[in-house]
Write a protein that binds this DNA or RNA. Structure first.
Lengths: 110, 110
DNA sequence: CTATCATATAATCATTTGATAATATGATAG
DNA sequence: CTATCATATTATCAAATGATTATATGATAG
């Protein structure tokens, strides 16, 4: 059970177009910052700041792999089922994630 | 199916503490402005403006009865199931709505 | 008609938000 | 070590948000 303030924080964290798109992608796979820059056609600082917002809400986790930082959904978060409910109301992803995996690796960055 | 922008609008409409409380009350019963003023201990203009926000999102309907304007949830709204999902995450109403119904009528206003 | 009650609207202001530009950090390649 | 790539952080600014104050509207009581 959450306080009204906590639910407000959660809804504010996810209630933004760019972050909704990020969350939708993250239900499919793990992504790094530069991939979001390509997918969402936004500046790197803007992407980083949106990811930080989601991280502060503890909805996503980050993991560094070499030069890259990969983000993934925290599927153990108590709000995760509600998050999925929201994502299910969104249009399907226009980009097929498979389409930019070639020979088993991502082609969006570098 | 809704656009990202529409889902954003919906989440912004409900993602505020006062409006979450209003929505929680409205899942139980219909309320007029002066009742919300008492229940939420906020100024009348502030209450009116929050109700307008919910009305613009088409989440609630209004109905005038004499001097009073009563608001109710639009349970036919496509987002209504998601709204209930959110309300179910909230703490139970501290005030029992029954407690201010005496002899079949409301005692909060006048 | 006039006074009053309930509600709505408008103006103002402080705070938050999201984008951009500039800069800093941190890891890897050579 | 130095250069470079990926990401984070900071400062700045315009727009949105929510509370307050003052005022307007709209219905009812007398």
């Amino acid at each position: 059970m959450y306080s009204h303030r906590e639910i407000e924080s959660f809804l504010k964290a996810i209630g933004e177009e760019t972050r909704l798109r990020m969350i939708a992608y993250l239900t499919i796979d793990t992504f790094c910052v530069c991939e979001f820059v390509e997918l969402l056609q936004m500046s790197q600082p803007s992407i980083s700041q949106h990811l930080r917002r989601l991280k502060e809400a503890e909805l996503i986790k980050e993991e560094r792999r070499g030069k890259w930082v990969f983000y993934s959904l925290d599927r153990t978060h108590p709000m995760y089922p509600l998050l999925l409910h929201v994502v299910n109301m969104l249009p399907p992803l226009e980009e097929n994630v498979q389409s930019f995996i070639v020979d088993g690796k991502r082609i969006l960055c570098e």
